[in-house]
Amino acid sequence: MSDEAWSTPAAKAIPPEGYDTLERGRYGPVFPRTPACYGFSIIAKVKEGREEAVRAYGKQIEEAIAASPDVLKPLRLHYLRWVLFDVGSGLHFQYQGIFDTDFDKYTEDAVRLFSETGITTVFTNLEGFPEDWKTNPESFIKFVREHQFPSFLEYGEYPYVTADEIKKALRLKAAFSTMLDQMQ
């Protein structure tokens, strides 16, 4: 990939099985990096009566980041989106995450982060989530894989660019703006 691949928007149509060429990771297939980097979406049913706990967990993450902006840094996230919805069969939760590492590393880092910080995972409110997830990363990964719904199209306005590269470019822009302001 050229150094300026980011300058041309790109899209990737993904086959139903989630990859063109099967690559094996430590915990199964590794989905390829796309113009949107890496990521996954899961959908799972919320345990009866746990909607408020799910919403409270969102608030807990907001407060953790306010107290320590780098608390989720090990996950190398670009974006998270959480959605609660009911399609007639009970409340469901959708997790969408875009990040800079492959699936195996992301999930290992998530288990480690939650174990080290004492923050739990919102997934504990979902049906079928394993009780031993903190000591058994394989069970966490198995749950995520069983509830994953691969995307069939991913687009990047600035494809394959990491969150660190974006932050570096923004720091450079700010420094350049400051320099120009001082020259006036």
Rank of each mutant, 00 (worst) to 15 (best):
residue 1 M to K: 05
residue 1 M to W: 05
residue 2 S to R: 11
residue 4 E to V: 13
residue 5 A to R: 11
residue 6 W to Q: 04
residue 7 S to N: 06
residue 7 S to Q: 11
residue 10 A to M: 13
residue 13 A to D: 13
residue 16 P to I: 04
residue 17 E to H: 08
residue 20 D to S: 10
residue 20 D to L: 07
residue 21 T to E: 14
residue 21 T to S: 10
residue 22 L to E: 13
residue 24 R to G: 00
residue 24 R to S: 14
residue 25 G to F: 07
residue 26 R to D: 10
residue 29 P to V: 13
residue 30 V to S: 13
residue 30 V to A: 07
residue 32 P to V: 05
residue 32 P to D: 07
residue 32 P to Q: 04
residue 34 T to A: 05
residue 38 Y to K: 01
residue 40 F to L: 12
residue 40 F to V: 02
residue 41 S to E: 08
residue 41 S to V: 09
residue 42 I to E: 14
residue 42 I to Y: 03
residue 46 V to L: 02
residue 46 V to N: 00
residue 48 E to C: 02
residue 49 G to C: 09
residue 49 G to L: 00
residue 54 V to N: 09
residue 58 G to F: 13
residue 58 G to N: 15
residue 59 K to F: 06
residue 59 K to S: 15
residue 61 I to W: 07
residue 63 E to K: 10
residue 65 I to E: 13
residue 66 A to T: 05
residue 66 A to C: 00
residue 67 A to I: 01
residue 67 A to L: 10
residue 68 S to F: 08
residue 68 S to R: 14
residue 69 P to M: 03
residue 69 P to D: 07
residue 70 D to H: 09
residue 73 K to T: 08
residue 76 R to M: 06
residue 77 L to A: 11
residue 77 L to W: 02
residue 79 Y to I: 12
residue 80 L to S: 12
residue 81 R to C: 09
residue 83 V to Q: 14
residue 84 L to Y: 06
residue 85 F to V: 11
residue 89 S to C: 09
residue 89 S to I: 12
residue 91 L to A: 12
residue 93 F to R: 02
residue 104 D to R: 06
residue 105 K to T: 15
residue 107 T to P: 00
residue 108 E to K: 06
residue 109 D to W: 04
residue 110 A to K: 00
residue 112 R to K: 15
residue 113 L to R: 08
residue 113 L to T: 10
residue 120 T to Q: 04
residue 122 V to Y: 08
residue 124 T to F: 01
residue 124 T to H: 09
residue 124 T to D: 03
residue 125 N to G: 01
residue 126 L to N: 08
residue 127 E to Y: 09
residue 130 P to F: 09
residue 130 P to Y: 06
residue 131 E to H: 01
residue 135 T to F: 01
residue 137 P to M: 05
residue 142 K to G: 02
residue 142 K to H: 12
residue 144 V to E: 14
residue 147 H to Q: 08
residue 151 S to I: 03
residue 153 L to W: 02
residue 155 Y to W: 13
residue 159 P to N: 11
residue 160 Y to G: 03
residue 163 A to R: 15
residue 167 K to M: 14
residue 170 L to C: 04
residue 170 L to R: 11
residue 170 L to W: 11
residue 174 A to K: 10
residue 181 D to C: 07
residue 181 D to F: 07
residue 181 D to L: 12
residue 184 Q to G: 13
